[in-house]
């Protein structure tokens, strides 16, 4: 098996913004979408032209837009990441229980979250890495249940080179059997019937190389498409 060294990997892998771009291409016109705090939030920037997408934030807004200019913030109007936002025409404001009714009640088309680990059965670990420090969960455990699709956007391996796609999560779980698709820095992988099914991979990476960087078996059903993203700063 050919092993790819970490330096080469760094050169070919997609950046966070490129992974966000790739995930954005799959968001359908008219969709209601919740984007997790951090990297998932970048997805909104790359929404393809001509598609109308309504973004939901857990603290009680549907239809928020860009951040306001500095100095123009209204701190009563923030998102779940506590950043100032603006409202698009047609926005709606509601209380927290209604907001999570939209989540759990199956009304969102897509939720996208970050991950420490995703298992081949769709388990997600993304809220803490051990038992030290102050635990904090926020809405992650609710968000993974109810949206019609729950996707993860992540580097394929951790900072110390360990696979983040695994047979079984070793970090504390956020949810069981909840993830349907994973966009990584190297591939697009679906979770179907408790298996990782490879849909797309970077052209400069062989299947064997990708498998060596993955902690569980990658299955191939049909042709594996080429994962391409434009260069983005």
């Amino acid at each position: 098996m050919s092993i790819i060294n970490p330096e080469n990997l760094k050169q070919i892998k997609l950046t966070n913004t490129q992974i966000a771009w790739r995930a954005a291409q799959d968001i359908q016109d008219g969709a209601y979408v919740n984007l997790g705090i951090g990297i998932p939030e970048l997805i909104a920037r790359y929404q393809p032209q001509g598609r109308q997408v309504t973004y939901h934030t857990e603290n009680g807004v549907l239809g928020f837009g860009e951040a306001p200019a500095e100095g123009r913030e209204d701190w009563d109007l923030i998102n779940a990441g506590k950043k100032a936002i603006t409202l698009n025409n047609g926005a709606a404001i509601f209380h927290h229980a209604d907001s999570f009714a939209m989540v759990r009640g199956g009304h969102l088309d897509l939720a996208v979250l970050g991950a420490y680990q995703v298992s081949q059965t769709g388990d997600l670990a993304n809220w803490r890495v051990g038992s030290k420090g102050v635990p904090a969960v926020g809405g992650a455990m609710d968000l993974v249940h109810g949206a019609k699709a729950v996707a993860v956007i992540t580097d394929h391996v951790s900072k110390d080179g360990k696979p983040k796609l695994v047979e079984q999560c070793t970090f504390p779980l956020t949810g069981v059997g909840c993830i349907t698709r994973v966009y990584t820095s190297l591939a697009v992988v679906d979770i179907q019937h408790q298996k990782f099914v490879l849909r797309e991979k970077l052209p400069d990476l062989s299947f064997e190389q990708l498998q060596s960087l993955t902690g569980a078996t990658l299955h191939v059903e049909n042709e594996v498409a080429t994962l391409n993203a434009p260069p983005i700063d």
């Binding site: 857990e58 927290h96 907001s99």
Partner: peptide, 30 residues
């Protein structure tokens, strides 16, 4: 520590006179 949506719903339930409810949030977690 309570998942955010569960926190909201537990508060709502108290106000609505619902002693308990079932939710998928948190299943299988610590």
């Amino acid at each position: 520590l309570v998942p955010q949506g569960t926190l909201a719903e537990r508060i709502r339930a108290a106000g609505a006179g619902i002693p308990a409810f079932f939710t998928p949030a948190g299943f299988g977690t610590e």
